[in-house]
Structures are given as structure tokens and as C-alpha cells.
Nucleic acid binder design. Structure first.
Lengths: 276, 276
DNA sequence: CGGGTTGTTCCATTATTCGGAACTTAATTT
DNA sequence: AAATTAAGTTCCGAATAATGGAACAACCCG
């Protein structure tokens, strides 16, 4: 597979108590759990905060954080609070700049934006999250990094549900089994049953809606993008405010979104060569 | 210090042979060296490429890469080549979105852009690199991530040289001693002596120029931003094409750039509280 | 088919991490 | 101001994970 392809069905190791489980990668796994804690927090965390979240012995945690700081993955402020480090930016900038999937999709996203005048997103399924890889807005200069790179749940985003509709049955079942739902709005799916029902519908139609399920007042229509072997799955979407995007309009736009998705898949096939 | 503050004088561990040294952080350090190799490469690397670059035994390297892949920091394509992983994006998006320095500087960058019509950059000194934290362009929608997050050398960028001019003498000496110069254009500094001479000048003037030293045809004027204890150092700059930005014009803009830098420092002081 | 290249697995040795406890420092209460 | 509690740091024997050499498998390519 291309560099942007990876197992779309890997499980996430977290539970509801805030205590995170180490992954099967020894030392690295434990450190990444900490990095996750620090980067996902709403504000810089103090040592004790992390201590209770990580459930590690004090001495151990102290050294682990020290190493992360030493490497620039985490930074410490005057008050001894831990915040994400800037070295992460450098890593990410490179990861993004050369991502093949993004490069292939880029022109088609621009076309779609031109055709509709609304914001276009490109996302990839990673675990049970959608990671947004690109965004093309109209008019106003984009607030960079605004959405790009962010991981959003798959069960309440258009791209997410579109992606799930192309997941092999077994992978989908595993993913749904481990999924925990958070109600963001009145229309957010909160059960695997209703979600699965909609995913089946989407699989037939070939496109998905987000009916203000993630953010009140925001709708979108999305189409899936997948590799033949289904190891790589993502999607494109058109997003905008509900007052401007009626469900009727979204239904009309399902066609151009699917066309764009098709062209991107075509581009992938060319890059991949005829053999696959 | 604030979360965005960290030792500005830490040394970088790399040498010219392409063999990178492990840092003093045990297992993590070794893995980060690998991640550096993969993210800094121009194209996905094959196992053997990394083998020669990293100078590790095959078995060891194999396991290390396996762990990085397992954690999503690196991804493997069909041909077994290694590329940066998308998990890095998620980390970085959060690191960026909540960075205090950037948040404080944001409005002043916009003002500066409005006043001059040219591109404004915000950067921070990390080791001997400048990491760009923000960018405000005129007109055209920004190509996101384009510059943001990128690490550039300190000795050939306006922000870099401005930052160096505020580094304590000892830290500066250490940094210069370890610096290795790459000639990007005809006017790039390639010796510590000439660089030091210019830095002394900049320290007096309070602003720095980039006279097409990093990229031919691109000039800039920059002013330093620093915390009182000099543990945090960065800068703002106005950048643009040489044909439009005469040296005369840049000299005029030195004033607004310094004013903007001053206002950002003021903002930092308020955030930090009166005690420091 | 044969020979080189590339990637993977195994396992005894070695180095690192682990984690309890003692210790220092800072903040809070009496 | 002294006493008390909380917060953060250091230490070191025991437990664990990383190391790296070598053997093994897969893949080209001529």
C-alpha cells in the first residue's frame, strides 16, 4: 500500500475511567499514552493531574515525563505544568506536506469547492477516528491548522460514516463493539444499532449526511474513498451551516461529491499502478 | 515559564556522516532519531536506507521500526517503504491550537499584515532551528501547513538572526560552536565569524534582515521577541519577493515590525503576571 | 537455476526501566 | 511562626525490555 495506507481497523486502547492501557510496544507505548494525555487535555496538566490519569508510580512517571520533555515532545511551563511540545509541529508539517493521498486529492478538492462555494474536507479513517487531512474554504484566508490534523469520532461525521460504510463486515463489527458514544447534539448516534442501520443505508446509497450530529447548525454530505483491499478508507465532504445548506441541497450535492471521490480513487489507482 | 518556553540553547545531536547520535533519553531517544530520519527524508525510505542512515543492527532496527509503526508514528506502504504517520498530525494540531505564545501574538500579526500587505511570520527558537508557529498572508487563501511547523536554520532567516541577537553570550557561543552551515544562496552565512559580527549589529539595531540568504529572491525584516530571563526567544517578520521589497522599504518596515514585537512581549508580560 | 539483496525471526546477554520508599521543597492550616 | 499536608524529586535493587549476532526466509534479477 501507499504510505497513507494502514490498518483501518486497529483498536484504540482506552477506557472510560481515564486510566489508559499501555499498548504492546513496550517503553514507547507507555510514553505515547502519556503524550496522548498531555496533547488531549484542554489545558496544561500538572504532575499530579497526570499522575492520577496515568496511574503510574510517581518515580516512574517523573522519569517518563522527563524523557518526553528532553525530546521536545512535551514542554514544561514556569508553574511546572506540562503542555504539548513544538517538536510535534515539525514532525507533522513533514508528514502532511508529503502525504500522497492528500497530494492526489488536492486538485479535486479545489474543484469541488469551486463548484459548490462551500467548505470541502478530506479525511482518513484511523482506528475509530477520522483524521482530517485537508480543507478547502472559500473566500477568507483559512485559519490554518483549524481543522487539519484533528481527529474526530467516526460515528457523528459525514466522512466518518461514509468511511464505515466501506469497511469489511468483520472490521466494522470489531470497531462498533469497542466504540463508546458521546452525545454532541440532539441527533448524535448513541447506539451501535442505529448507527449500523444508517451505515447499511449509506453503503447502498454511496453517500452519507451529517445532520448536525457533531455540531449543532452544521451539516454535510460525504462520499467514501477506499482502496480495493479496503485497508485504506477515507472520504470527502462538503460542509456548511444548516441555514444555507438545506437537506434538499445536500441531496443534490451528493452527486458531485461522489464524482470527486471517484476521481480521487482513480488518481490513487494510477499512482498505485495497474497491478493492484 | 509559559508552556511555550523552553531551553533555547539545547544542542542538536547530528553529524555530517548521516549517522545520528542517540540522545540521553534511552529508548525514546533512539526511536526519535529514527522518526527524525523518516520525517526528514525527501521520500519514503526503504528498510535498507534507514539501516545505513541509522547505523543500527538489522534486528534492532527492525523491532524499533515495528514499534513506531505500531504506534502510528510511522506508516509502511505496499513496497515496504516507511513514511511519516498520520498520528503526528493529531498531536501537532493540538500542540498548535493551544499554544499560548501563538494565541497572544495572533492579533498583532494580523495588524502587521494589514499595515504592510505582505506575509507575516511568527517563529520560535528551538535548538539551532526556528520553528514557524504562524503565518498571515494577504489575499489568496493560505496553503495550510505550508510553512507552519517547519523548522528552518537560525543562521539564514530573519527571525533566526533576530532571535540569536537576544541569546545570552554563553548560550550563543555554544550554539555557534555546534552549528554547521549549509549554503542555500550566494549570500548565506557560512562561517560563525561573519554571522557573529552581524548578530552583534542586530543586537544594537534591534532588527534583522534576510537578504535572500535562505531562498533566492526572498527578503525579510524581523524583530526579536524574548522573555526577560531569555529562556524563551522568538521573532516576527515581514517577508516577500525582492522585486517588491527593496532594502529601503524593508528599513522603513523595521519600525512597525519592532512595534509589533513589542506589543507581543507586552501581551506575554500581562499573561505571565507582574511577578516575573 | 543460482547468487546476491532484502527483510524477518530467535534468543542469550546486556542495559534500561520499574517502582517502592526516603527525601526535599512548597503550600496551607492552626 | 510552627505544624501539617501536599507536591515534586531522587535513589537503588529487582524486574523487564532492548540489544545484536546469527540463522532463516523471501525476493529479485540475471
Amino acid at each position: 500500500m501507499l504510505p497513507f495506507l494502514s490498518r483501518a481497523d486497529e483498536a484504540m486502547d482506552s477506557n472510560r475511567d481515564g486510566i489508559m492501557q499501555a499498548r504492546e510496544t513496550g517503553t514507547l507505548g507507555k510514553l505515547m499514552v502519556l503524550l496522548d494525555l498531555v496533547t488531549h487535555a484542554d489545558a496544561p496538566l500538572r504532575f499530579t493531574d497526570i499522575l492520577s490519569l496515568a496511574g503510574q508510580p510517581r518515580g516512574t512517571l517523573h522519569r517518563q515525563l522527563g524523557h518526553l520533555v528532553e525530546e521536545g515532545l512535551i514542554e514544561v511551563d514556569v508553574d511546572g505544568r506540562y503542555a504539548p511540545g513544538l517538536r510535534l509541529l515539525d514532525f507533522a508539517a513533514r508528514s502532511w506536506a508529503r502525504n500522497e493521498f492528500r497530494l492526489i486529492a488536492e486538485p479535486h478538492l479545489a474543484d469541488l469547492q469551486q463548484a459548490t462555494g462551500e467548505t470541502v474536507h478530506l479525511g482518513v479513517l484511523r482506528g475509530s477516528s477520522i483524521i482530517y487531512l485537508d480543507k478547502v474554504e472559500g473566500r477568507q484566508p483559512v485559519r490554518m491548522y483549524s481543522q487539519i490534523g484533528n481527529a474526530s469520532p467516526c460515528y457523528c461525521t459525514g466522512v466518518g460514516k461514509a468511511a464505515l460504510s466501506r469497511l469489511p463486515a468483520e472490521s466494522l463489527a470489531n470497531l462498533l463493539a469497542d466504540l463508546s458514544f458521546t452525545r454532541f447534539t440532539a441527533s448524535t448516534h448513541v447506539s451501535a444499532e442505529t448507527l449500523l442501520a444508517e451505515i447499511r443505508e449509506i453503503a447502498d446509497l454511496g453517500y452519507a449526511f451529517d445532520r448536525e450530529e457533531h455540531e449543532a447548525g452544521i451539516r454535510c454530505v460525504a462520499a467514501p474513498i477506499w482502496s480495493e483491499d479496503r485497508t485504506f478508507i477515507g472520504g470527502v465532504s462538503i460542509t456548511g451551516p444548516a441555514y444555507r445548506l438545506s437537506m434538499e441541497l445536500l441531496r443534490q450535492w451528493a452527486v458531485p461529491v461522489q464524482l470527486a471521490a471517484g476521481r480521487i480513487m482513480e488518481g490513487m489507482r494510477i499512482r498505485l499502478g495497474p497491478r493492484r
